[in-house]
Write a protein that binds this DNA or RNA. Structure first.
Lengths: 145, 145
DNA sequence: AAGGTAAATGAGACTCAATAGCATTTATAC
DNA sequence: GTATAAATGCTATTGAGTCTCATTTACCTT
């Protein structure tokens, strides 16, 4: 039936799943389940939070979506897996998320007490002040903190 | 009054705070608020979860304790800040936590779209299979997954 | 050492992200 | 088209973490 390029292998194609994927494809930043739900509704379609969670869980399991838990941000966010290895920096004042262009793990071998440990991957998050919030930068947003 | 070596600067010394600190000092791994609460009760003292949370929050703010949010582990864990920069590897099968001896960020400069971003710190977590759980190692624990 | 006071705690209610349950609907195989 | 296993709609529940407020406590002052 063509056109299902990008559809995760071996998954039934249902309306809610298509909606979630569509929203994530258009997203320019990781989104929470609630945000995804709202975006679908804003697009004129019904959406239920529990269904969104179920779909996201499935997509994550299939590797089509990445789940990200930024510290200080109590809710999990999700992004399409575009298969670029990627990390984010988060502003501790405004909580905005900035993608990083490089990764420190490229040429690094962790040293563990358990030397049998089989490393499969890593998560990294950098935190600090973004340009607008940096107090040393006169960032007015920083006053909130 | 001597003896308050290691007590966080400028904090009233109360029973509950002493208990929390004591538990964290003895801990050989990061602990959840609930685990800390149980440990105090096991020591024969009363302990309330809301108080433990309040104390931990305060200690974190004062820099005496680190809060760690490992992915896949839904609860936050806390450890005494021993002022060694440290990261952990977590087993995706048994969820045990292994301290890492080195850090990839030592000689690394993140490259961000916002080049005004002021980096203050980072969190890193490595995941994989520990020696006991590694399927390629005949790890029987891996069957659970 | 006693008293005053601001801060901390005890105890429980509450919030809200995330999950579980179950009746109904829907996608795909036949 | 029909069967049927899976997905969804929708509600209720869970559980980590927070909030509230009356009571208690640490510690400063005298």
């Amino acid at each position: 039936m063509g056109e299902d390029r990008g559809w995760p292998e071996g998954l039934k194609k249902t309306k809610p799943r298509e909606h979630v994927l569509e929203v994530l494809e258009k997203a320019d930043k990781p989104m929470s389940a609630m945000e995804i739900c709202s975006a679908i509704e804003k697009g004129g379609n019904a959406s239920w939070i529990s269904t969104v969670y179920r779909i996201l869980e499935l997509f994550v399991k299939k590797g089509a979506v990445n789940k990200i838990n930024m510290m200080g941000n109590e809710v999990a966010v999700f992004e399409l897996n575009r298969f670029h290895h990627k990390h984010y920096a988060v502003c501790i004042s405004c909580h905005k998320i900035f993608p990083m262009r490089n990764c420190p793990m490229e040429r690094f071998l962790p040293s563990l007490d358990d030397d049998e440990f089989h490393v499969l991957g890593h998560n990294l998050e950098v935190y600090g002040y973004c340009g607008r919030c940096d107090p040393e930068n006169g960032g007015e947003e920083a006053a909130k903190e």
